[in-house]
Design a protein around this nucleic acid. Structure first.
Lengths: 93, 93
DNA sequence: CACAATTTGTTCGTATGTATT
DNA sequence: TAATACATACGAACAAATTGT
């Protein structure tokens, strides 16, 4: 259970690489608040199982999020949701 | 850094295949003693990153060295520099 | 201290599809 | 047609560190 939404289907062989699609799903989940900041995402193997892909493909998806700063990876610990941005522009209190 | 020397530029689209060029660079490095016998070379992906090529291209370069006996590959471990030849008859060059 | 489970890191092996030469 | 080269994707295996029992 608690797979992922019906709109989170992963399409193989399409124009968008699987690992990019998975990164998108995870990004949306994070924004939705599925994992609070400083909380670890499921491990690479668990993500692989959930999405029905190889571990290295799930790993690549996590790396996309890490490269864009959405998460940070701690070896032997997991991938953690980064602290929220300071709300870019002005101070807005 | 510690890329490769200034004479180790890889030329794409030239008469010499990229994987052959890379094999040549690695061969020279081995003779230079960059990796001692029984020591592993960088992995295929690391070589690919260093030379700016796809992993399969770096892999093909390593295979050239393996086919000529310069290195031997151990699955899931790496490519190792072969023990030096007994220098033919036994005396110095 | 020992042991198992979990998790990231890294490696080679293989296959497919696409594009270029 | 064939060789080259890249990107993607899966598989298998081992290492090292952490965590829990």
């Amino acid at each position: 259970m608690s797979d992922f939404g019906p709109d989170d289907k992963i399409v193989h062989g399409g124009p968008v690489p699987v690992y990019v699609q998975i990164a998108g799903v995870l990004r949306a989940r994070i924004k939705r608040g599925d994992w609070l900041p400083m909380r670890p995402l499921p491990g690479e193997q668990r993500l692989a199982d959930e999405f029905g892909v190889a571990r290295m493909t799930a790993r690549k998806a996590v790396r996309v999020l890490a490269d864009e700063g959405t998460v940070f990876v701690v070896p032997q610990r997991g991938a953690f949701v980064s602290a929220p941005e300071h709300s870019g522009s002005g101070d807005a209190q």
